[in-house]
């Protein structure tokens, strides 16, 4: 049985339009105008147990709205969903016991108290047996290296430390499904790496199914094999991470290091993106890689060569642009 089944999930908001100035505000008192915003439109997907899936899209694409529908926070306008076998917006206690939603921009810990106090309260709320609570807490604080910080008031922790505590709070009840909404937003590279490592290790140990939204492609590359992309509420891609690069990027990057200075005529093979002494990077069509390599190696003395996919950020940006152009045309 799938962990998440979304069928035609749709969410439309009616948003009040406020007119400028005092007169506009007064007019709004008796006649208010509304605009319909289609945040999510008929999306379908399935997520199987143990998968780690990235849910990507530009700002306003409908990612967070989808996560909120899947976690039962808001009701959909149309469509069906089953999460862990439950209709999420019925908010059954048994359902809420089995998943966690972590939002990078919100906190669930008590601001003025040490995180340990919040953890104890969560133990009561989720009715976690004391021995299981202790072993999970030890495991998670160890994974994140925060054993000595749990007795410090949350407001006195750094952003990275707070996020780690949030993650611990979300995992204490050993959820089967983890919904992560930009968990590394605002964190430095080291803290990001720590969170990624913890999530990866935890996934290996517990096999928790994870749906992640993030604007940091490093999170996606480090954690997910499958990617779902939505834009303007529509799903535009659902498949393996490796295939998204093949499908949306027509080029590869050949990185060359010559014995002497790089030749000036490399632009006849493709787009030269870097030319610096003996180093040169050339973007060429995917089908031409072998031919270009053969020609360069035949004509020049090459000390080192590598062929790389373009950065994921670039590919995803292209996916968003194409989807945006398609939406505008429609």
């Amino acid at each position: 049985m799938s962990i998440i089944e979304a069928d035609g999930l749709t969410k439309t908001y009616r948003v009040a339009q406020k007119k400028e100035g005092v007169l506009g505000a007064l007019r709004g008192l008796y006649r208010r105008e509304y605009r319909e915003v289609r945040a999510v439109e008929r999306i379908h997907f399935r997520i199987e147990p143990g998968e780690m899936v990235a849910f990507l899209g530009p700002n306003g694409a409908g990612k967070t709205t989808t996560l909120k529908m899947l976690s039962g926070l808001i009701y959909p306008t149309a469509g069906q969903a089953r999460v862990l076998g439950y209709v999420p917006w019925e908010r059954a206690d048994a359902f809420r016991r089995q998943f966690a939603l972590v939002m990078g921009q919100k906190n669930q810990l008590w601001w003025d108290l040490p995180a340990a106090d919040s953890f104890q309260l969560l133990r009561e709320i989720y009715a976690i047996p004391p021995t299981e609570f202790k072993s999970t807490l030890d495991e998670l604080t160890g994974l994140l290296g925060v054993e000595k910080l749990t007795r410090q008031a949350v407001r006195e922790l750094s952003l990275g430390e707070r996020m780690k505590m949030e993650l611990i709070a979300a995992l204490l009840h050993r959820p089967r499904l983890l919904l992560l909404d930009e968990p590394t937003i605002g964190l430095d590279v080291v803290a990001q790496g720590m969170i990624q490592k913890c999530l990866r290790d935890y996934h290996v140990r517990r096999g928790v199914t994870t749906l992640l939204t993030s604007h940091y492609m490093r999170d996606v590359e480090a954690l997910c094999d499958r990617v779902i992309v939505i834009n303007h509420g529509h799903m535009v891609y659902d498949g393996p991470l490796s295939r998204i690069v093949e499908r949306f990027s027509e080029t590869k990057l050949i990185r060359l290091q010559f014995e002497a200075d790089a030749p000036e005529d490399l632009n006849r093979f493709g787009e030269v993106v870097r030319l610096d002494g003996p180093f040169a990077d050339v973007k060429v069509g995917r089908s031409q890689v072998a031919a270009v390599l053969a020609a360069v190696l035949d004509r020049h003395a090459v000390a080192d060569v590598s062929v790389e996919e373009p950065p994921l950020e670039e590919v995803i940006a292209r996916v968003f642009e194409e989807a945006h152009a398609g939406h505008d045309a429609a």
Binding site: S71, G72, L73, R91, D93, R96, R97, L101, K106, I125
Partner: peptide, 14 residues
């Protein structure tokens, strides 16, 4: 602020 989200997710009576 949307902070109600955190309370609605807990498995007890809202």
């Amino acid at each position: 602020t949307g902070d109600l989200d955190g309370l609605l997710l807990k498995p007890i009576d809202e």
